[in-house]
Design a protein around this nucleic acid. Structure first.
Length: 798
DNA sequence: CAATCCCATTTTTTT
DNA sequence: AATGGGATTG
């Protein structure tokens, strides 16, 4: 395929395929005139595939500055903008370095400056630099900053991306080398599809989905897989009931992924590592290529990512890691804080540089955050300081209810708007579900807002349907995609037919698409079904045929036409969002493709990869809107706002019930709180509500333990609705007393610890019914979730 | 095979 | 409160 070739050349072939005048970058030194012709000569091809890795690259020629290269404009005072520690970090070249960069200490800046420094002062080619960031947006941001520093408008061949996107890129080029059935057209499975696959396997094997929930099983598999244990090894060592049940599921899952030429998120990392370990050529290529590897958010790297870094840097590349152990908040996703805590041990001859000067927040904000995080034991220890004078204290507000909390926040936003732009304000919360009240309150007051994350664009059903068709066109082996759309729009293909098809596919070990073809050829089905399937095949084949000639957006338009998707949506009244909104979503998808084609020159494969790997934080193009931002604390990492509202500081919610089991988990929650607080530059509001609806049930709430960990000297409590200050802690104590008296022994506090004679210790997740019919749902440490009748179960509160 | 209704459930966080 | 899966019915 044509596109394919192009991609390969991007990764490997460009050296030979590009005009040789690309090389001077490295050798030519500070001779302005000698570069005059360079920049215009960057071949078009270069821009073609940087898609997905770089934005802002356009084929447009830039301003008169066209003859400016990074040599001649090397801002001599590039370093003057830095403080001594930052400067040391930027220029240190004598080996691996770890920069411990506290919140707001300018770490992005250090990385950007270092890259610029490498290019201008050390005269390195951009191709020898690998910059790894946590999100794609951060990668783009980084690229932009470097470009600004260097006064350039394109920086081809600099690899800047997330671990996942970099791995995908490595695999696209060479996954055949793995020796498996994979080819470069592999598609990337999202979490939902992966869970669906597991569900089908569980059903096949007759394993109860009640006791083995697909998502939980998937989580377990992921852990084992990323840990480097193969299905066979796992099966052999499995001892517990759970492990023995899961082992064959894991095996089938892996087999299925490979057979369908699809990879899940973990595969990207695991297989890339395997590829590098296995193929000396591939490994050598990258080891030789990368001379400098810069890693941002090092505290949130996982073990496998660490292995990848080791592999890539063993050729002698200089590793430059930047992170802050106090901001490690992705343990649940496999991040291993020991990567940063043990850096010195892992790289004995490394240099550690600390950035402790904070340029972001006022003293009260920083003081409060520092004091909070001091309660953690898992840290290297640092003390952030600021010279930013003045600043109002941290505001605390205890609301009557969740709705009132939102009203309070919205009113403050309105007040503040006289001197702060919408853009500079954000509401941060622990869970996505909390956004609702704020949305309503903002809507009422006509405050422009934007919810980041949550229900993601690409997770909408209609978008996924269309994407599935596209995936199938590109990768005919993609079974999960086929399953999704074989009967969408409904064309009379039901359970029975699908079962036949599946059986056929398994028996002949062919793809599902082949099985469909066979089914049509063989006959033996009702003629109506056969013609339905034929129709489906025509669509898939038609799309496949158009794949090469038509740009993605045109192909999609054709698909919409061929499937009659809009009329299908139009008929879909009643359940879910109204059809119009869905049609709009599809239109947005098409225009996103259009933009991708024209601006980034990407093909369908590139688009699908981006779709799979990009999150909503990786803004589409609406990020420029002047609006108050609403997002989870996790999504807020790396951002800053003049005013931050940190909402829902309640027990059970923050720290979250499900993360209060161990001290380690609580420490992570505390770091999350720290991250949230340190997003604020001028003003920080902390709020909580005494009453909150959880799953539609009103609950009495208590303040978060974190509130007690912040010294009152930094805090000023705002008046409650009644007018008088609420006296937070007294109120809390009373509330606690009251609750205890009211419910005595018969009830279970959500989040409370219990002990069961048979199942051991667990945490109460919820209750339903009452009196004699009271049922308690408990998450047991060892046995998972159980629902039991309180009257009968031998549950003890601990 | 599809539409409808009812019921149970809700991962907190996301590449 | 909302959503999605399952059973039931047409």
């Amino acid at each position: 395929m044509v596109e394919r070739l192009a991609l390969d050349q991007d990764v490997w072939g460009f050296e030979s395929s590009l005009p040789s005048q690309r090389r001077p970058v490295r050798s030519a030194v500070r001779t302005p005139a000698s570069h005059a012709g360079n920049r215009g000569s960057i071949p078009l091809r270069a821009t073609i595939f940087l898609s997905g890795f770089s934005t802002g690259i356009s084929s447009r020629r830039s301003q008169p500055a066209a003859d400016v290269t990074w040599e001649d404009n090397a801002v001599p005072d590039l370093l003057d903008e830095l403080n001594p520690e930052q400067r040391e970090a930027v220029t240190y070249m004598d080996g691996p370095a770890l920069v411990i960069a506290g919140a707001g200490s300018g770490k992005t800046r250090v990385i950007a400056h270092r890259i610029a420094h490498l290019l201008t002062e050390k005269h390195l080619s951009p191709r020898s630099i690998l910059s790894v960031t946590f999100t794609n947006k951060a990668a783009e941001e980084m690229r932009k900053r470097v470009l600004t520093l260097m006064k350039k408008d394109a920086l081809p061949f600099l690899w800047s991306g997330t671990f996942h996107s970099i791995c995908a890129r490595i695999l696209r080029a060479d996954c055949e080398e793995l020796g498996g059935p994979y080819n470069g057209d592999f598609t990337i499975l999202d979490a939902d599809d992966a869970a669906g696959l597991v569900r089908r396997i569980l059903r096949d094997k007759g394993i109860s989905e009640k006791n083995f929930q697909p998502r939980a099983v998937l989580g377990a598999i992921s852990k084992v897989k990323v840990g480097g244990t193969s299905a066979a090894e796992y099966g052999a060592s499995a001892r517990s009931h759970f492990a023995r049940t899961i082992a064959p599921v894991y095996a089938s899952y892996e087999k299925s992924l490979a057979a369908n030429n699809v990879m899940d998120f973990d595969d990207l990392l695991v297989l890339a590592v395997r590829l590098l370990e296995k193929s000396e050529t591939v490994r050598g290529n990258y080891q030789e290529r990368f001379l400098h590897i810069l890693v941002d958010e090092y505290q949130d790297t996982s073990r496998i990512q660490y292995r990848l870094l080791r592999l890539l840097s063993q050729g002698g590349a200089t590793l430059f890691a930047v992170g802050d152990e106090d901001q490690s908040i992705y343990r649940w996703r496999g991040a291993d804080i020991h990567n940063i805590l043990d850096f010195k041990r892992d790289f004995p001859d490394s240099k550690v540089i600390r950035l402790e000067r904070n340029y972001r927040s006022t003293k009260p904000i920083l003081g409060a955050a520092n004091e909070l995080v001091k309660n953690n034991t898992q840290r290297l220890g640092k003390n952030l300081w600021t010279e930013k004078a003045g600043g109002s204290p941290v505001h605390l507000y205890a609301a009557m209810s969740d709705r009132e909390e939102a009203a309070y926040v919205a009113d403050r936003v309105l007040d503040l708007h006289s001197r702060v732009s919408w853009n500079e304000m954000a509401v941060l919360y622990r869970t996505n579900a909390q956004s609702r009240n704020f949305e309503e309150a903002f809507l009422n007051r006509k405050i422009p807002y934007q919810v980041i994350g949550g229900q993601r664009f690409y997770e909408r059903r209609e978008v996924r349907d269309i994407i599935a068709y596209l995936r199938l066109a590109l990768n005919p082996l993609d079974g999960p995609a086929l399953m999704r759309v074989i009967n969408v729009p409904s064309r009379g293909v039901g359970k029975v037919t699908i079962e036949k098809m599946e059986k056929l596919a398994t028996e002949n070990s062919t793809s599902r698409l082949e099985a469909v073809r066979q089914l049509v050829a063989e006959g033996g089905l009702p003629s109506r079904t056969v013609s339905s399937l034929r129709g489906f095949l025509e669509i898939v084949d038609g799309a496949r045929k158009r794949l090469e000639k038509n740009p993605p957006a045109d192909l999609t338009e054709w698909l919409l036409e061929a499937t009659g998707y809009f009329s299908y949506l139009a008929g879909l009244t009643g359940q879910g969002p109204d059809p119009e909104a869905r049609i709009d979503n599809i239109r947005e998808l098409v225009s996103a493709m259009r933009a991708f084609e024209t601006i980034e020159r990407g093909d369908l494969r590139a688009f699908l990869e981006r779709q799979a790997l990009y999150s909503d934080q990786d803004d589409l193009d609406r990020g420029t809107m002047d609006s108050v931002k609403l997002m989870t604390l996790h999504a807020a990492k790396g951002l800053e706002f003049a005013v931050v509202f940190l909402a829902g500081l309640e027990r059970e919610l923050f720290p979250h019930v499900l993360s209060s089991g161990s001290e380690e988990e609580v420490e992570e929650e505390r770091r999350l709180c720290y991250v949230g607080m340190t997003r604020a530059k001028e003003l920080l509001h902390l709020t909580w509500a005494r009453r909150r609806f959880v799953y539609g049930i009103p609950q009495e709430r208590l303040p978060s333990r974190f509130l007690k960990e912040i010294p009152t000297s930094f805090v000023e409590e705002a008046s409650g609705v009644g007018g008088a200050p609420t006296g937070l802690f007294e109120a809390a104590a009373m509330l606690a007393d009251g609750q205890q008296k009211k419910h005595k022994a018969a009830t279970f506090r959500i989040g409370g610890r219990v002990h069961h004679a048979k199942y051991g210790f667990g945490i109460v997740l919820g209750t339903s019914g009452s009196e004699d019919d009271l049922k308690v749902t408990v998450s047991f440490n060892r046995y998972g979730r159980k629902k039991m009748l309180a009257r009968l179960a031998k549950l003890e509160k601990v």
